[in-house]
Structure formats: C-alpha cells, structure tokens
C-alpha cells in the first residue's frame, strides 16, 4: 500500500506496505530498496546509495498517513533531519511516524527510519499543512 504516488507512479517514493496505522497518532510502514531503482544509475556509479531526500519523502508520505483526516496534507517544513547511515540496494527500511502535535490546520510528526536494528535516519519534526488551504503569507 502507498498513500502517495507521483503522477507516473515513479521516483518520489513513498513506501511499499503499511504495517500499522492509527490515524491521528502513528503509522509504521516498510519500504524496500531494490537495485532496479533508477536513481542508482547516477547516485552513485561506483557506490549506490539511496538519496537521503527520497527517504525524507517516504517519511513525509507516512507522516501524512499518520496525520489522518479527510483532507490531503502537504509537507510545509522539516526540522532536525539527520541521515546517520547509507541506505543501499537490498535494504528493507522500516519507517515509523508519530504525531507529536497540531490543530485542525497543521500536524507535526516525528519520524524514524531503521534498517534492521540500526537507525538510518530521523526527522525531529515534519510539519504538515492542509493541501487545499492557502500557503502562509500568500492568502
């Protein structure tokens, strides 16, 4: 299952399967990293590494699922994102997103990515805003 898809179902990356979902509280998902991902052709030719921003996009997609509700969310900002270990072909990434705050218009989520027992990336705060509301400062 994936809650976010690109127009062509391509690279922006979400996750392969949700394994836990408590809307408004938390979500857990798995994303597999096969060697067939097109990004590995160039990132990098001598040492394939999943670009950290694609892991961040997976966290954001899962954060939107954890936020729940009837309306779509967009990622407005991130704070305290850390990439601790390389993720590469053959890895299976377990993603966790936990809602830490928010109101009717925004939701804040903390996210962690693990491969096996090792934490590979963390995001202290993913701030989500409702996708159909005006951008702050643009209304």
């Amino acid at each position: 299952m994936s809650t976010t898809r690109t127009a062509t179902g391509a690279v922006a990356g979400a996750f392969d399967r949700i394994v836990e979902l408590e809307p408004g509280r938390r979500a857990v998902a798995v994303r597999n990293i096969p060697h067939t991902l097109p990004c590995f052709d160039h990132h990098f030719p001598r040492f394939p590494v999943l670009p950290g921003v694609l892991l961040l996009e997976s966290m954001a997609a899962l954060a939107k699922a954890a936020a729940g509700g009837e309306r779509a969310w967009r990622l407005a900002s991130v704070r305290g994102v850390r990439f601790k270990h390389f993720v590469g072909p053959g890895d299976q990434v377990h993603l966790t997103a936990e809602v830490t705050g928010g109101n009717r218009h925004t939701t804040e989520v903390r996210a962690t990515a693990r491969v096996g027992d090792r934490v590979v990336a963390t995001a202290r705060a993913l701030a989500l805003a409702l996708a159909d509301e005006p951008w702050e400062g643009t209304a």
Binding site: T6, A7, A12, L56, E57
Partner: peptide, 23 residues
C-alpha cells in the same frame, strides 16, 4: 519528467526534490 506528485492543486514538485536540487 517522472517525479511529479499528484495533489488537489494538480501535479507539484515534491518537497524532497526541491531540497535535493539545492543540495
């Protein structure tokens, strides 16, 4: 290009790819 993300406002560049372009 293949990365566009579907939203209620139409296809948009994912946040992570705007950040990646900067990186």
């Amino acid at each position: 290009e293949t990365y566009w993300q579907a939203t209620p406002n139409g296809p948009v560049l994912p946040f992570g790819l705007a950040l990646e372009a900067l990186c």
